[in-house]
């Protein structure tokens, strides 16, 4: 059943640009997780996980097992380190293309 439906075909292209364009694959240096990464600037990072990648990440499993913790976790420090390493190696282009 249709939900929020765009009435202009260009909107679909916008959706593609903002959600899927320019994602670079980055593999974790410590586990088998591979994510899609985009960096519009040095301090901006967009990380797209998949359920496969999440399953491979021992950090999230460890955080989820902590009984007292909240059920939402800000991120995996190992993946952050892996992305930083990829940036240093010049594997991730930094910069936005007209905002996306």
């Amino acid at each position: 059943m249709a939900s929020f439906v765009p009435t202009d075909p260009h909107t679909l292209e916008d959706q593609r640009l903002y959600t899927r364009a320019r994602l670079v694959e980055v593999s974790c240096l410590d586990c088998l997780a591979t994510v899609g990464v985009k960096k519009n600037s040095e301090h901006h990072t967009s990380i797209q996980w998949s359920s496969d990648a999440l399953r491979h990440c021992p950090e999230f499993a460890r955080m989820a097992a902590r009984p007292e913790g909240r059920d939402v976790h800000e991120g995996c420090p190992r993946m952050v380190a892996s992305i930083e390493a990829a940036v240093r190696e010049g594997k991730i282009p930094i910069g936005a293309e007209d905002g996306y």
């Binding site: 040095e42 967009s46 359920s51």
Partner: peptide, 9 residues
Amino acid sequence: DRFEFEVDT
């Protein structure tokens, strides 16, 4: 699917 986004402030 999990998605993370840090805004550059």
